[in-house]
Write a protein that binds this DNA or RNA. Structure first.
Length: 881
RNA sequence: GGGCGCUUGGCGCAGUGGUUAGCGCAUCUGUUUUACACACAGGUGGUCGGGGGUUCGAAUCCCUCAGCGCCCACCA
């Protein structure tokens, strides 16, 4: 046992213990262990990323699960790593190069650029890993993986080849979400719909065959008119149905000859009667729905834009070279000049934005690789059958809905940073294989969507032995924002390639928001730097604060005050342990059951309850409940009551009794530290050693580190019986504490300072044992507690379950005031009695209510009545002689 | 348009049919009492978004309205 210093300096302690754990290989998972396995794979953060509050939440939860599992005797693997994050990383490095060297990456060339990205990765890639270490994450760093590691990359390539050979991957010219800034295709999931304020343009077109007939078309995108290859109406729409088969002249580009502007009027069910004018311009190359109409009617596809979103030659002389937004305005002007623009109305619609570049995506026809998702029915089935469970459960529905409506996944990206598509071309020949078939073959220039690699994460990260021991993993902890991107896809890949769901529990955290509910973001500047919080309050404090405010799957409104609370809690723990140590003595061994005081029994029972509660809460992933239970037990029950009561013995003279109380204190503290360790790994480790609890333990049971000390189990019937702990002890002690609270209230009401030692009188039928009297005296800060002594008329009093308590006050007695006070009290009690009685008098209540509820109500009534009697007794005393 | 979540004291949340609706923060009062002022003791403050229903009994179940938020969806 080393001496616990007066103040706790987390900054030193935390880094020392982390180093210690690393040196003792505490986080390393043994694939050949005989212990039952518990495994988690980390959601790999972006290599370019820095730790934010979402990571703190996510990884604290995983760490809690991992640490608890270790203490429960499991062989734990928490597998860490990072994601190459294609677009994000490419952007970051490209921007840096542009800034430093004023050159674009195209100038640099593919090979050179990739070298730069690797340089960047090697230089900065460990930042977020180091930050996780600061947080206390107990990951097995010896197994750290990166999605572009050679082995991992091979898995990605092999997967592609396999799915290709199965006919699930195909190449096709289709409508994709095109990001005009990143110049790449995106998956549907990477598109974010945002309401935009734009305009609806109404323009008219002349029917070729009926020059007197004009149709009015509504559009938000007049710049795409040069790409229109038909006009569509609903065949059931009587206003227009007769025109199907005829033609109109497309107004743009103006300089085109008439025959080039002549486009058909077609009938298609997709057109809504009510919307706009009921006439739809069809632009198959620039709109997903129009593309489908185009296919149905074998229309021409005219692409009028360049990849960067500017207009090309086909858009005509007026628009050529203009940016799409500028072109929209110019197109509207042209329509006005032609005299065909009827009106322009403000209009709000949803526009898809590129997640990364935050610009409107362009639906664009392009040649891409697509994947028909594998193992979809089984993915739905495993969740239905409960082999895959969601916490909270409601996410199952969301998962299910997505799987039932998925479209093929566009997996190719026009980027350089990522896994190259393993497809080779020679003229018309195509081959899908890892290595080049020969010198005259060229590889597909595209890379794969980052998620096409991360969906293999739970198994592609593991070697054979590790897989055998730790796969499938136990739990996955993720934010709900990547449920589709990552979680669902991992299930599919897992089922397809391992035949098993890669994890059986999915815990979806809330999203961390600021205290007024906004999403944390760099641009708002409302995201605190977790490292600042750690250096200000400690990692333990940060973890505790975040956990305490993280209800099951609800969004978390982050407030620094939570962290402050966490720090205060650590300090409280520190001081309570110091208190134990100040009362000297070596760690006490066994508790002598015959020497237990009522308070000892009470706190042991409370501990038992807390252990059960914390265990249950953690089993259900209710981290805030677990944290609250820890908090309540330790602070409100142990510190506020037991510790204070224990001073009656510790400051006394009975050495044997003292030793027993110290043994109880050690028992409680040892359990408490272990219960807290998953939440507060550092301070608990420090105190575990500081109090010497490691000394009697075998090395793998907490002798070296609290990390492997056994996780507390409920004490069990045998223990409770052996120590003769039962409800009567609980009731008595609670009555005692109730008396103390009431007495303190009495002081308050009569302005008697809590610091002043005063005399109390307790009048009761049964005498209190000396120990109880001593505890009362201490808790009441009394000069004495006189049993059944005489009190003067008008002495303030309060009725308790242990008797009537009086606070004799010389010279301060005011009979009428006291009478008024008691009468007021009486009124309150009477009201309660009426309430309960009314319930009990209701005949259907007595009939229908279960026996225990009835009993409870009767007990309550008796309780109120005895309180009433106490007040009446005292009133009588006031009036009497 | 569909789905989901939320609405409890000033703020953030617990409580999902049965004690006097809890907790933390904030606030007010008192206390520097040898574990802790990052503390201790005590207090003020809510009838549980509105309305209706089921029930002996509802914050808790059902219906409905309203507000906030999220997700999904090819209405130009």
């Amino acid at each position: 046992m080393s001496e616990i210093p007066k103040t706790y300096d987390p900054s030193v302690v935390e880094s020392e213990w982390y180093q210690y754990w690393l040196e003792h290989r505490c986080f390393v998972a043994d694939a050949h262990s005989r212990k039952p396995a518990y495994s988690i794979v980390i959601p790999p953060p972006n290599v370019t990323g820095i730790l934010h509050m979402g990571h703190v939440l996510n990884n604290t939860i995983q760490d809690i699960l991992a640490r608890k599992a270790r203490m429960e005797g499991k062989e734990v693997l928490w597998l860490p790593g990072t994601d190459h994050a294609g677009i994000a990383t490419q952007n970051v490095v490209a921007r840096q190069i542009k800034k430093d060297e004023k050159i674009s990456i195209r100038d640099l060339g593919r090979e050179k650029f990739l070298e730069r990205v690797w340089d960047w990765k090697n230089k900065h890639g460990s930042i977020i890993i180091d930050q996780l270490k600061k947080l206390g994450a107990s990951c097995d760093w010896s197994r750290e993986r990166f999605t572009m590691d050679p082995g991992y990359s091979k898995a990605v390539t092999d997967t592609f080849i396999d799915l290709y050979n199965k006919g699930l991957i195909y190449r096709g010219k289709r409508m994709v979400n095109w990001c005009p800034v990143a110049l790449t295709a995106l998956s549907d999931e990477e598109v974010i719909m945002k309401p935009q304020n734009g305009a609806m343009y109404f323009f008219k077109v002349q029917v070729v065959e009926e020059p007197n007939t004009w149709l009015t078309i509504a559009t938000t995108r007049p710049e795409t008119i040069p790409g229109d290859t038909a006009v569509a109406v609903n065949p059931k729409d009587t206003r227009y149905a007769h025109l199907i088969g005829k033609h109109i002249y497309r107004p743009l580009p103006t300089e085109f000859p008439e025959e080039k502007k002549r486009i058909p009027i077609i009938g298609d069910d997709h057109v809504e009667f009510e919307f706009g004018t009921g006439v739809l311009k069809v632009t198959p190359a620039h709109d997903k729905a129009d593309f489908e109409i185009g296919q149905r009617h074998k229309l021409e596809f005219i692409d009028v834009m360049n990849p960067d979103g500017s207009m090309n030659d086909l858009a005509g002389a007026d628009l050529r070279g203009l940016d799409r937004f500028k072109a929209r305005k110019v197109a509207a002007e042209k329509l006005t000049e032609l005299g065909v623009l009827e009106k322009e109305e403000p209009y709000q619609n949803n526009v898809g934005f590129s997640e990364r570049a935050d610009v409107p995506i362009e639906p664009r026809l392009s040649e891409q690789w697509f994947l028909k998702y594998p193992s979809v029915p089984r993915s739905i089935e495993v969740a239905e059958k409960g082999d895959l469970k969601f916490f909270p459960e409601r996410w199952h529905k969301v998962y299910d809905h997505w799987l039932n409506n998925i479209q093929d996944w566009c997996i190719s990206r026009q980027l350089w940073w990522g896994h190259r598509i393993p497809v080779w071309y020679r003229g018309e020949e195509v081959r899908c294989q890892a290595e080049s078939p020969g010198a005259d073959w060229t590889q597909d220039p595209d890379v794969l969507d980052t998620w096409f690699s991360s969906w293999l994460w739970p198994f592609a990260t593991m070697d054979e032995a590790t897989l055998k021991k730790f796969y499938p993993t136990t739990a996955l902890v993720s934010g709900p924002d990547i449920l589709f991107f990552w979680v669902a896809r991992m299930v599919m890949a897992g089922l397809e390639y391992t035949g098993q769901t890669p994890f059986s529990h999915v815990y979806l955290t809330g999203i961390v928001r600021d205290k007024i509910g906004r999403k944390m973001s760099k641009s708002l500047g409302n995201s605190p730097d977790p490292l600042d919080l750690i250096s200000k309050y400690s990692a333990d404090a940060l973890r505790f604060g975040v956990m305490r405010s993280a209800p099951l799957g609800q969004d978390i409104l982050f407030d620094e005050q939570h962290v402050e609370l966490g720090r205060n809690f650590c300090t409280k723990l520190w001081n309570a342990c110091r208190f134990r140590q100040m009362h000297a003595g070596e760690v006490q061994g066994e508790i002598d059951p015959t020497k237990l005081t009522s308070d000892d029994k009470w706190i042991l029972l409370r501990l038992d309850k807390a252990i059960a509660e914390i265990g249950d809460a953690l089993r259900d992933y209710k981290f805030n409940e677990a944290t609250s239970a820890v908090y309540r037990f330790f602070w409100s029950e142990f510190c506020d009551w037991y510790l204070e009561a224990s001073k009656a013995v510790l400051n006394g003279t009975d050495a044997a009794q003292k030793a027993n109380t110290l043994a109880v204190l050690d028992f409680i503290l040892s359990h408490t530290l272990r219960l807290m360790h998953p939440f507060l790994p550092f301070v608990t480790e420090q105190l575990w050693h500081g109090l010497g609890y490691n000394q009697d333990m075998p090395a793998d049971q907490g002798g070296t580190t609290i990390m492997f000390a056994p996780w507390p189990k409920p004490l069990g019937a045998e223990f409770l019986q052996g120590y003769s702990l039962d409800e009567s002890d609980e009731r008595f002690v609670e009555a005692k504490y109730e008396l103390v609270t009431k007495a303190r209230n009495l002081r308050r009401e009569f302005n008697v300072s809590g610091a002043k030692k005063v005399r109390f009188v307790l009048r009761s039928n049964s005498e209190l044992p000396a120990y109880e009297a001593a505890v009362l005296k201490l808790l009441l800060n009394a000069e004495s507690v006189d049993f059944n002594a005489e009190v003067k008329k008008g002495t303030p009093s309060v009725g308790t379950q242990l008797g009537d308590l009086y606070l004799p006050l010389e010279g301060l007695i005011d009979v009428s005031a006291e009478k008024a006070r008691l009468n007021k009290e009486l009124e309150k009690i009477d009201a309660e009695i009426v309430k309960v009685q009314e319930k009990l008098n209701n005949p259907s209540f007595a009939q229908k209510v279960p026996a225990n509820v009835l009993e409870e109500h009767q007990k309550r009534l008796a309780d109120w009545r005895s309180k009433r009697e106490a007040v009446l007794r005292n009133l009588k005393l006031l009036e009497g002689e």
